[in-house]
């Protein structure tokens, strides 16, 4: 039983970080209907940013997100403005290939610049934990979970309470109608991709103290992001949050009871089932 609760709690905590990755992807998808294959690579860029802020300027990873978020936003906006905006009306497979190409460029540029060495970011609390009812809880994961909640709340406020946020949501609901209403769709796309990138970057920053960093680290997370996004309902932020936590739990608990090798199979089977029976996702309403 202890094993069960132990895996449940670590699943929930790691799920928080997954949620951030998923939310970023879901915003991009919601607004542009583009599947961003470079999402994991954005996360990787965020990791490297965090790593260098920490090793060169001695800024704590959890504090450095104040720098990472705006930088990644600008980077995402740049990518959108100069690359992705140009294929908004292109065939979907061209959009996919463009993001794959961008991802390759990112990971290989980083490799040339910093070699493909593994980098480990060690903080004083990287492997610290505390006990609650005999269960060990990782301190850095708990902090990152808390930060995830705060960021999600702010995002909500932004999307529901501000004009720009409303415009983004309108674009996500119906691109054509939004355009007719006088919403600058291209600008909204830029903001959306910026947001997506900064969320991916933040996830990278949050995971950096407990994980390791290398140029190809993104691919694992790209696939995970897809699963989370679909699970929650493409375009739904609450959905992505829940989807992230759910995937965290499925991986963690499934790893124990079905075998850690099989857990990927379970995750993807769950993913397919959701796609089939509720293609709009657990909480999604938008149709395509």
């Amino acid at each position: 039983m202890a094993v069960f609760f132990q895996s449940l709690i670590s699943g929930i905590l790691i799920g928080g970080v997954y949620a951030l990755i998923g939310i970023g992807l879901t915003i991009i998808f919601g607004v542009m209907r583009i599947i961003n294959f470079a999402h994991g690579d954005l996360l990787m860029v965020g990791m490297y940013l965090t790593y260098f802020l920490f090793t060169l300027l001695h800024i704590d990873p959890f504090v450095s997100i104040i720098v990472t978020i705006p930088l990644m936003f600008l980077y995402g906006a740049f990518l959108q403005k100069f690359f992705i905006n140009r294929v908004l009306d292109a065939l979907p497979q061209n959009q996919i290939l463009l993001t794959i190409g961008l991802g390759l460029v990112m990971s290989n540029t980083v490799m040339l610049a910093f070699t493909s060495d593994y980098r480990i970011l060690t903080t004083t609390y990287s492997s610290s934990s505390f006990n609650v009812f005999g269960l060990s809880i990782s301190t850095p994961l708990l902090i990152s979970f808390a930060i995830t909640i705060v960021i999600t709340a702010i995002l909500y406020w932004f999307l529901y309470r501000t004009d720009t946020g409303q415009a983004i949501r309108a674009t996500a609901q119906d691109r054509g109608a939004a355009q007719l209403m006088g919403i600058n769709v291209k600008r909204m796309s830029i903001i959306a991709f910026g947001l997506g990138a900064s969320l991916a970057g933040t996830a990278g920053a949050l995971i950096a103290p407990t994980y390791y960093i290398f140029p190809q680290v993104g691919s694992v997370f790209t696939l995970k992001a897809f699963v989370i996004t679909v699970l929650g309902g493409m375009g739904s932020i609450v959905g992505a949050t829940l989807g992230g936590v759910l995937i965290g739990i499925v991986e963690s608990v499934g790893g124990v009871y079905i075998g850690s090798g099989w857990k990927d199979v379970i995750v993807f089977v769950v993913f397919l089932l959701v796609l089939l029976f509720k293609p709009s996702g657990l909480l999604g309403t938008s149709k395509d």
Partner: peptide
């Protein structure tokens, strides 16, 4: 559309 693409990846 994109849902099919994702399903095929899965």
């Amino acid at each position: 559309g994109p849902y099919f693409t994702l399903a095929s990846i899965a």
